[in-house]
Computed example of a mutant assay.
Amino acid sequence: MKKEQDSISNMEMSRRGFLKRTVLAGAAICIAPTFEKVTAAEKAINGKSVVPAKIPAILATVRETRTLGDGNAAFTVSAMGFGCMGLNHHRSQSPDEKACIRLVREAIERGVTLFDTAESYGYHKNEILIGKALNGYTSRVFVSSKFGHKFVNGVQVKTEEDSSPANIRRVCENSLRNLGVETLGLFYQHRSDPNTPVEVVAETIKELIKEGKILHWGMCEVNADTIRRAHIVCPLTAIQSEYHFMHRTVEESVLPVCEELGIGFVPYSPLNRGFLGGMINEYTMFDPTNDNRQTLPRFQPNAIRQNMRIVEILNAFGRTRGITPAQVALAWLMNKKPYIVPIPGTTKLSHLEENLRASGILFTPEEMKELENAIAAIPVVGSRYDALQESKVQK
Rank of each mutant, 00 (worst) to 15 (best):
F75V: 01
N88S: 14
N46E: 11
S92E: 09
A74F: 14
R66D: 12
A73G: 04
A99S: 12
F82C: 01
I55G: 10
M80D: 09
K98W: 06
T65H: 13
H89C: 05
K48A: 13
S78D: 02
D96V: 07
M80I: 04
E42P: 05
S49R: 10
G71W: 00
P52C: 09
C84M: 08
E97R: 11
L68M: 05
D70W: 12
A60F: 04
G69I: 02
S92V: 05
K54Q: 14
A73D: 01
T61I: 10
V50M: 10
M80L: 01
H89V: 00
T76F: 07
A44H: 08
G69H: 03
C100D: 11
D70T: 15
G83S: 04
D96S: 11
C84K: 05
I45W: 06
T67M: 11
C84G: 05
E64F: 03
L87R: 04
V77M: 04
K54G: 07
E42T: 11
T76Q: 03
R63F: 14
R102D: 15
L87C: 00
I58P: 03
G83K: 02
S92L: 06
A57E: 13
A41R: 05
K43M: 12
E64W: 02
C84F: 09
A73T: 02
R102H: 05
I101W: 03
C100T: 00
L103N: 01
K54T: 08
G81S: 08
S78F: 02
A60Q: 02
V77D: 04
E64Q: 06
T61R: 15
S94R: 10
A53C: 07
A57G: 11
A99N: 09
T61W: 13
P52E: 00
D70E: 15
A99K: 12
S49N: 13
R66Q: 13
G81P: 08
G69P: 03
K48W: 05
S78A: 08
E42F: 09
S94D: 14
K54F: 11
R66P: 07
K48P: 04
I55F: 14
D70S: 15
A53W: 06
F82H: 00
N88W: 04
A44I: 05
T61K: 13
K43H: 09
S49E: 05
N72D: 15
N46S: 13
L103Q: 01
H90Q: 10
T61M: 12
P52I: 06
I101S: 03
V50N: 10
K43Y: 09
H89D: 01
A79T: 07
V51A: 08
I45H: 08
A74N: 11
A53N: 12
A44F: 06
F75W: 00
D96M: 08
G81F: 04
S78G: 03
M85H: 01
L103R: 00
E97N: 08
L59Y: 09
L59H: 00
G71S: 06
A74L: 12
K98C: 07
L68R: 02
A41V: 04
V62Y: 04
A60M: 03
E64K: 06
I101E: 03
Q93G: 06
F75P: 12
H89P: 00
K54C: 05
H90C: 13
A44E: 13
K48L: 09
D96K: 06
R91Y: 15
K48E: 11
V62I: 08
N46A: 10
S49V: 12
Q93Y: 10
K54R: 15
P56Y: 02
D96T: 08
H89Q: 01
F75K: 00
S92I: 04
G86Y: 07
I101H: 02
